[in-house]
Amino acid sequence: MARFAPAVAKLISELGRLPGIGGKTAQRLAFHLLSVPEKNALSLAEAIVAARQKIKMCSVCSNLTQTDPCEICSSTTRDRSIICVVENPRDVAAIERMRDYNGLYHVLHGVLSPSDGIGPDKIKLQELIRRLQEHQEVEEIILAMNPSVEGEATALYIARLLKMSGLKTTRPAHGIPMGGDLEYADEITLARAFSGRSQI
């Protein structure tokens, strides 16, 4: 049964493959794109093409970038003795928003998860090791993976790998969000925050 013209059906199925977009939303988006002025829709198409063609992975830190090496890796004002390892580019953006961290980054593009078939060779780990061998000026590695089961495992794994290197490996503290209410914190966050309490 042909419910839609082939070109429309193709658009719906492509949109439906995007994360967080279900069948109905895909249909709505498709018809929206067909109803707006043609130049708006084409501008979106061009933006996708441009982003895909211009954005690549930084050959140093694997972050997404338009220039290689990326702005952060080629900056002359950043502290080159410290590298913060994160799961994905969005985490870099989050830490940059803080404007308090002036070191470099390394993006893994994933975490260890045997159940998804992701081992150390499927994330940008070799790249990190090579980078550390080439850059002896690095002194500290911050392992800023998400506090999930897989994130913790990945952090621990990297820490073990680097054990012999003499590098300082650190992990951001777990705790209660600022401005958040103690009563709304989940039990594990609270338990960790309590066991990691510090004297004031």
Partner: peptide
């Protein structure tokens, strides 16, 4: 060795 190191990590967790 990588496999064994990975197992070490999951063991610990």
């Amino acid at each position: 060795d990588n496999d064994m190191l990975q197992l070490d990590i999951w063991d610990e967790q």
